[in-house]
Design a protein around this nucleic acid. Sequence first.
RNA 1: GGGCGAUUAGCUCAGUUGGUUAGAGCGCUUGCUUGACAUGCAAGAGGUCACUGGUUCAAAUCCAGUAUCGCCCACCA
Length: 893
Amino acid sequence: MSELPKNYDPKAIEQKWYDWWCGKGFFHSESSEGGKPYTIVIPPPNVTGILHMGHALNESIQDVMVRRKRMQGFNTVWVPGTDHAGIATQNVVERQLRKEGKSRWDMPREEFLNLVWEWKRQYGGTILNQLKKLGNSCDWDRLRFTMDDGLSDAVADVFVRLYDKKLIYRGEYIINWCPRCGTALSDEESEHETENGHLWHIRYPVKGGRKNDYVVVATTRPETLLGDTAVAVNPRDERYTKFHGKTLILPILNREIPVIVDDFVDPAFGTGAVKVTPAHDPNDFDMGRRHELPMINVMTDAAEMNDQAGPYAGLDRFACRAKIVADLQAAGLLVKVEEHSHAVGHCYRCHTVIEPRLSLQWFVKMKPLARAGIDVVKGGRVRFVPERWTKVYLDWMENIRDWCISRQIWWGHRIPVFYCEAEGCLHQWAQKGKPEACPACGSTQFHQDPDVLDTWFSSWLWPFSVFGWPKESDDLKFYYPTTDLVTAPDIIFFWVARMIMAGMEFMGDIPFERVYLHGIVRDTQGRKMSKSLGNSIDPMDIINDFSADALRFSLIALTATGQDVYISKEKFELGRNFGTKIWNAARFMQTHSDGPPANMKDPQFQADLLTADDQHILARLHKLIGVCDEHIERCRFNDYAKAVYEFFWHEFCDWYVEYAKQPLNGGAADRKAEVLKVMNYVFSRALCLLHPIMPFLTEELWHGMGYTAIAESIMIAPWPTALDENELSTRGVQAAAVSYVDAKHAAIGLARNLRADYGLAPAQPADFILRPANDAIGNRVRGDRAAYLPYLKAGKLEVEADFIPAKPMPSIITPLGTLFMSLDGHVDVAAERRRLGEQLQKTEQELESVRKRLENENFVSRAKPEVVEQVRTRKRELREKCEKLTKLMEGMQ
RNA sequence: GGGCGAUUAGCUCAGUUGGUUAGAGCGCUUGCUUGACAUGCAAGAGGUCACUGGUUCAAAUCCAGUAUCGCCCACCA
C-alpha cells in the first residue's frame, strides 16, 4: 500500500500497467491448461487502419467481455490480428508511388509486392499500438495477419477444396467494375446511392422504313448505346406488335439490330422499349443470353471508350455520354430528356461510379454453402443480438448470389489456379503450392492465374485459420467454436454471414455462438465519423486529454444495445469525472486506515458490530453484482456501466462514505475497524465489477489500496459472486435493516426539502423532533440519532412517540414518521422576525412595482416580448420568495 | 420497390415482461472555499412520451394507421 497522490495521473499509470500485464503474461492463455474455454477473435482491422471511434467502441466491448470471463476463471483467449485489406492497402502504396510520378506498372509485380510488404512492416502496426493504448487484453502471442503463411495456406486449401467440389467456377458474366481501382468487385462492394440523373429518349429508325418509322427507347446511360445489340419490347405490348421481327438501325454507328420480345420488359416504364446492351447491364446480359445476342464491350479497363465505340474511342465514359447526347440531338434523334432519379453503384473503397461490365472472373457458388448457414441460425445455434438482425441475415442468405472472388490487383492471395501452355493440352487445375509439372501432360510450361482473391476470402476463415487450420492443432480443438463475435452491422454480409458458411463447410461447426452487433458511432449531426468529413474525434486525443479509462467508460455508458451513438468531445467528461470520484473515495479511505486491510479474501463481519448502514451497503453491493451479471450477459453494457456508476457515486460516496465519517473520526476502535473492513470489502469488490470497463484505474487502486492479498492483479482477481438474502443474513446482513436505511435515506431527503422550503441557509441549524410511525422504527432511530445530525444539519434530534406540538410547527411526513422542525434556540426569533418582516415588505413592494410595469399598456406595447417575459419571470420569482418568507415567519410563531 | 430503426426535459439519450409520482448525464437557477472530491456538495426549475384511433382496470410500453428523420437491401432500362 502506497500513498495515493492528490491527483490521478492516467498518463503515467496506463502505460505502466499495460507493460506489467504483458510482462506477467496475463493476456496469454494455453489450451493445455484446460478449463472452460471462452474465445473471441477480433474483427481484424485493416493494416492501413487508424483507430477511430467505431473501433474504440468495438474493442472496448470485447475487452469488457474478455476481462470479465477471465476473472470468472474461464480459459479465455482474445485473438488479435489485422487484415491485409487488398484494395485499400494497394491503393495506399500506389498513391505513394504516384507522388513519385510512378505507377505499379513501371515495375515487376514482385517488386511492387515488396514495396507493399515494406509499407506493412513500417506502418502496419499503427492500429495495433493504438489497441494497446486502449487497454485491450488481447493475447499478443497469437497475433495473426491474413497473409501469414498459415493463413495463406488455409486460403489456398479452401480454394482447392471448393474448386474440386465444383463450387468455384470461372466465367464471363456482368460484374461490378471499378475503373479507378481497375478491378472487379463483389455485389457487396458496390454501394448503391440514389442520384438525380436523366432519362434520355432516343429514336431508333426502322431499317427500310419511312421517315416516321422508328422506335423510341429510354436510357439513363446513352453511351452504352454503342454496345447495343437489340431493342426489346414486351410481347403483349400492342403498341409494338407491328415491330416484331423488324430490324432497327442503331443511331450513329448504323449497326443493324433486331427487335426482340421479352417478358422482362415493363411496358409501363419509359417508352416500353428497351435498348439491350448485354455487355454493360445485368438484365440485358440475361436477355442477351436468352436471345443469343452478340455482346459488345465498348469500354477499356479504365472506362474509356475502346475501338468498338467508333468515333468515340478514347473518350472517357462521361465525356462520351455528353458528346453522344449532343450528336443525337444534332441528328434529330433525341426525342426528349426527363429528370430521373435512380440508384447508381459506387466503389466501396474509392467511391468511383461502378461500371457494370462483361468480364471473365472467378466465382463461388453460394447457394449450396448457404443452406447450412441458414439452418444453424434458424435452429438458434448462432444467435444475433439484437435479434432483429436475424431477419436481415436470413433475407440475404435466402436470396444469396454467387460471389465474385477474383480481383485484378496484386496485393493479396494469388489465385492458385494454373494453366498448362503445352500445345493440345491446355489443362487447367488448382493446387496448393508451386506445381512442378502439368498433372495432365507433364509439361513444365504453365502459368498461374494473375488475379488475387477478394480480401474477404481470407477473413471468412478467420475464426479457425487463426488457430492453425487446416492443421488440427490442440488450440483449434479447444478454442473452436469461438463464443462471442462483436462487430458493427455494416459487415454482416461481407463477413459474419460468410464466416458462418465457412465454419459449417470447413469445420462442420458454427464459428461462434453469439453475434453482438453494436451501433455505429456518429457525430452529433448523425453523420458517420470519417476523416474526409473532418468530423471525427480521434480516440487518441481523448486518451491524451482524459484517459483510456474515460474513453472506454463514456463510450460504453452512452451506447444502448445495438443503437447508434452520437458523440462529441464533452461527452467524455462523464468518464473522466467518474474516475476522479473513485480516486478521491480511495484517498478518503486511505487517510483513515493504518495499513492494508486484513483477510480481504473472505472477511468475516461481526454481526453485533454491523450497523444498519453497514448492512445496507453490503446488501446493495450484492444486488449490484447480480445486476451487472445480468446486464453483461444480455449485452446491455450501458446499463451495466450505469449501474456501477450509480453504485459508486450515489450509494457508496453520497451515503456510505458520508455515514462512515462519524465512526472513522473518533468512533470506538472496534467500530472503526469494522467500518474499514466493510468499506474495503465493498470497495474492492466494486473495483472488480468496474475493472472490465476501467482497467487501468482499478489496477492502480487495487495496488494502492493494498488489495494484492486477494490477487496479484485485479485482472486475475475473482469476479464477485452475488449472495442472496439468506446467505447475506448468515453474515449479519438483515433485510429489515436494509429497508430501514432505505426509509431513512428517503426521510433525510424530505427533511432537506423541509429546510429548503423554509429558506434555511445550510449553515443554519434547526432542531428536529420525529414522531415515529411505529415503535420498532422509533428504537432504531433512537439508536441512530447521532448519525442523523450531520445529514439534517440539526442542532438536536428528539424521538417522541406521542409528540404533539404545542404551537404550529413546520413538519413533513416521511417513511419513518412525521418530522417536525424548530428553530428555537438557534436564532434570535424576535430579531429574525423583524428582519424577515422588512424583507417581506421590500419584496412585496418590488412585486407591486413589477405588477404595475406589466399593467402599463404603454410599456407592454413598446416592449419586446422578451422583456415582457423577463418581467413576468421576475414577478414569479418575487411571488415565490414572498410565499417562502411568509411561511418562514409562520414557522417562527 | 422491400425491410429495419428512431421520434420521451433546452441538448444527448435510458426506460427490460404493460403497473405507484416517466429517469440519467450535460446545460440552466439558487446556495455552499463542509478536513476525499469545485472534475465537487446540497436544493430546484423543466415533459401533451411525434400524431390519430384501438385493446386493457391500467399504455411511453401492446395493436392498426399517419407524419418526419435516418439506415440497409433491390437488375425498371
